[in-house]
């Protein structure tokens, strides 16, 4: 990494402040470019999005068929099922984000770029966040329709955002880890689910509280936990990403 930074550094001008500023803006530019590259690739191939959307729809349909025909209280199970569907769809999309890079050989190119590794991580994580949130927003109305139970509430938006940010942060790191192992597609959920359990517990509990119109006090600590999780894992994976991609 140090080697990369040396190449990238502009010729000494003595203007330390300006240099720092340009380094910082270069960092964000790299992250932004990685993000835009992912979006552009996705808009052309529609590979990740289509597989996630179809898969999550199928998961919901399996729930509908597996559960008894007439649920007494759809509200008891709906929050949990919704988050299971989100988690499964998320894992599927996260898996593709690095496997595609690896298989096309573009990961090496990305690593050769004279940029901070963590900038690549944040760009990727932002891309994954976008894919997952779009699928979630699309799935929610379909879910409401199939279960005949509306989960469409504006209050759910913060829960959705906080949960998905956590998914993207940990998921991107673990996807990069899993891609270099023998059982790559299988390994990601094995690593991802146990670590994500706090977020899944907090998100489904607070979704249940919102849908049954319980007061905000009940979910404030769950939201706080998710916020804290997102905050910690916004920083830590960025620091460790360099280690993950070491050859």
């Amino acid at each position: 990494m140090a080697r990369m930074a040396k190449i990238d550094r502009p010729i000494e001008t003595g203007l330390e402040k300006q240099k720092e500023k340009s380094a910082l803006s270069a960092y964000f530019r790299v992250a932004g470019q990685v993000f835009l590259k992912d979006i552009r690739t996705e808009l052309r191939t529609k590979e990740i999005f289509s597989s996630m959307a179809v898969f999550s729809l199928l998961v919901v349909m399996v729930f509908v068929f597996a559960l008894p025909g007439k649920l007494k209280e759809a509200g008891d199970v709906a929050p949990g099922l919704l988050w299971i569907a989100f988690t499964f769809a998320g894992v599927l999309g996260l898996n593709r984000s690095f496997i595609n890079e690896k298989d096309r050989g573009s990961l090496e190119g990305l690593l050769l770029a004279p940029a901070e590794r963590s900038a690549i991580f944040y760009g990727k994580a932002l891309g994954n966040f976008t894919f997952i949130i779009v699928v979630e927003l699309l799935l929610a109305p379909i879910f409401s329709m199939l279960f005949n139970f509306s989960v469409l509430r504006l209050e759910l938006l913060p829960v959705l955002l906080l949960g998905t940010i956590g998914f993207a942060e940990i998921g991107t790191l673990f996807a990069a880890m899993a891609v270099n192992t023998r059982a790559r597609e299988v390994l990601l959920p094995v690593l991802f689910f146990p670590i994500m359990l706090p977020v899944i517990i907090a998100a489904s509990q607070s979704t249940a509280a919102i849908l049954s119109n319980r007061p905000f006090d009940e979910i404030s600590s769950a939201l706080g936990l998710m916020f804290f999780f997102d905050l910690i894992f916004a920083v830590v994976p960025g620091m460790l990403f360099e280690l993950v991609l070491e050859e």
């Binding site: 790191l173 706090p198 517990i201 910690i232 280690l243 993950v244």
Partner: peptide, 24 residues
Amino acid sequence: AALTAVFGIIGFINVPLVYFSTRF
């Protein structure tokens, strides 16, 4: 070794979060 280290650090940081989340 690298992947074990990354997972160990993340997993350990996660333990208090898990404990807190089970309080729900």
